[in-house]
């Protein structure tokens, strides 16, 4: 970094380098069938100070972990100007220790801005914004752990570095972030038209040289990925809020890959529903208990 950040502890004056290993990293191996999805652990309300929150984790050997907190609806600051509907903003940040290779800095970089923007587009469609005039809904996503390298390439000549500079790793982070953010918004009790769930599918080169579609691909699976498609999908309304495709793919093939991604998203939606329901049931139980013993008076006399 050219400028040192005076607000943080910066470390040695001379640059430090990441460990150089004597042997290359073990090559990834395919361990799942192309249609098998990974299990998702999704839990709400792990950040109690926030209006709503969720924690998302892919079960091992996958390592993706992220946490989302939602604040709002809260009044927009005077500087934001008038807005007749709710303004949904999203911020995605990688923790410094979350990625393989270089440690990530604290200042927001291009990738984080890009992912934040895509996340915002994907989730703003699910909120009933007209119900909250002059309010802001802020979504914060912190990525604690990624899977694979996030700077790697996708595309036909990925090995030669000719592909597109966005990887399965980065797309996977966005997939998790959309699902997690959508759950957190529901946890905050914000009025929604539907819930968004994200799904991903990829077109990979199989051993026989033919292309095939893989659902929920992982960078750790070691597929020869030609193209990947990510969708944000609202299953109840059958609406797509976001499509993100990377790599080269023919028009006819594209429909097939996208349909697979939608299928993944539909299945993920089941996990989102369960996470939201779990919390709701707990709340209703707690309320039932409270109403059971009515003797408690909530008022406190103000004296002295």
């Amino acid at each position: 970094m050219a400028l040192t950040d005076r607000r943080r502890v910066n470390g040695p004056a001379l640059p430090t380098s990441i460990p150089f290993y004597d042997t290359p990293a073990p090559a990834p191996t395919v361990s799942r069938s192309p249609t098998e999805l990974r299990k998702i652990f999704l839990k709400t309300s792990l950040t109690p100070p926030a209006s709503g929150s969720a924690f998302y984790e892919l079960t091992p050997p996958s390592t993706l972990k992220l946490t989302t907190s939602v604040y709002g609806p809260r009044p927009l600051p005077p500087s934001a100007g008038f807005s007749p509907t709710a303004r949904v903003t999203a911020e995605l940040k990688f923790a410094p220790f979350s990625t393989r290779g270089e440690r990530r800095g604290y200042v927001r970089d291009g990738l984080e801005r890009e992912l934040s923007l895509q996340l915002q587009i994907a989730i703003s469609g699910m909120v009933r914004a007209s119900a909250y005039p002059k309010s802001g809904i802020d979504v914060f996503v912190t990525v604690l752990d990624c899977e694979g390298r996030i700077e790697e390439m996708i595309g036909v000549d990925a090995a030669e570095g000719e592909g597109e500079r966005a990887s399965l790793g980065a797309m996977q982070v966005l997939t998790g972030a959309i699902t997690c953010a959508s759950t957190a918004i529901a946890d905050a009790g914000i009025e929604c038209v539907d819930l968004v769930a994200a799904g991903m599918a990829a077109l990979v080169e199989a051993k026989d040289g033919k292309d095939m579609v893989v659902m929920d691909p992982s960078p750790l699976d070691g597929w020869q990925v030609r193209a990947a498609v990510l969708v944000g999908y609202m299953a109840a309304r059958d609406e797509i809020t976001l499509v993100w495709s990377r790599g080269e793919v023919g028009v006819e093939e594209f429909t097939g890959v996208m349909e697979s991604a939608v299928e993944v998203a539909t299945k993920v939606r089941g996990v989102v529903n369960d996470a939201v329901r779990e919390r709701l049931v707990a709340l209703l139980k707690a309320r039932g208990k409270k109403e059971g013993k009515k003797a408690i008076t909530e008022d406190v006399e103000m004296t002295g």
Binding site: A50, E91, A95, F140, T142
Partner: peptide
């Protein structure tokens, strides 16, 4: 400067702190 500790609160951990400079 062999040990470099940093603390980040701008993660939406509470309503007071926002992303950006600490």
């Amino acid at each position: 400067g062999l040990v470099v500790p940093n603390l980040e609160l701008g993660t939406g951990c509470t309503h007071n702190y926002h992303p950006g400079p600490p």
